Amino acid sequence: MDNKAELIEKRKKIIAGLEKTYQKLVEFKRYKKTPLIIARNGEIVEIAPEELKPNTPYITNGDMKV
C-alpha cells in the first residue's frame, strides 16, 4: 500500500472514530439531561440534548488532498 492510500485509510478510521464519539456524547447528554456547551460564531451557546441529532455524518468536500 502506498503512502497516499495509507493516509486515506487512516483518515477514514479517524472520521469513523469521531462519529462514534459524537454519538456516545449525544447519548450521554440525553441520559444526564444536560446541555452541550459549544462556541458558535465566537459566542458560548448551550444546546439542549433534545435538539442534538443522534448521528451526524462527517461530510467531506471530495477526496483528501495529499
Rank of each mutant, 00 (worst) to 15 (best):
T21A: 15
K4G: 05
D63A: 10
V26F: 03
K29H: 06
E46P: 01
K13F: 00
E19L: 01
E50W: 10
I8R: 14
N3G: 06
K33C: 04
K53V: 07
R11S: 07
K65C: 01
E27C: 08
Y58L: 15
Y31P: 00
T56H: 09
Q23D: 05
L7H: 09
L7C: 12
I8E: 03
K32P: 03
K24D: 10
R11N: 12
T60D: 10
E51T: 04
E9V: 09
P49K: 08
K33Q: 08
E51P: 08
E27N: 14
A39L: 09
M64L: 13
E50D: 15
T21G: 03
L52R: 08
K65I: 12
Q23R: 14
L52D: 07
K4V: 09
A5L: 05
P54I: 09
K13H: 04
N55C: 07
I37R: 11
K13W: 02
K10S: 10
N55L: 11
L36K: 15
Y22K: 04
F28H: 03
L25H: 06
A48T: 08
A39G: 09
P54C: 09
V45P: 00
D63F: 14
I38A: 15
G62F: 03
V66P: 07
K10V: 12
M64F: 12
K65S: 09
A5Y: 04
L52F: 00
K4S: 11
T56Q: 14
L7I: 01
N41E: 15
A16R: 00
P57E: 04
L7D: 02
K12L: 12
E19D: 06
Y31W: 04
P49R: 05
I44H: 05
I59Y: 15
I59K: 15
E6I: 13
T21M: 13
K53N: 10
N41K: 14
A48W: 15
Y31G: 12
K65R: 12
I47P: 13
I15H: 03
I14Y: 07
N61G: 03
P57C: 12
K33R: 10
G42H: 02
E27G: 11
E19Q: 06
A48L: 09
E27M: 08
K4W: 02
T34H: 02
V45N: 14
T34I: 03
K20F: 04
N61V: 02
V26W: 05
I15E: 00
I37Y: 07
N55A: 14
Q23M: 09
P54L: 12
P54A: 14
E9R: 07
L36C: 13
G17M: 06
R40N: 11
V66E: 00
I44N: 01
L25C: 08
N41P: 00
P35S: 04
G42T: 04
I38F: 02
P49F: 00
E9F: 02
R40H: 07
T21I: 13
R40K: 11
K53P: 01
I14G: 02
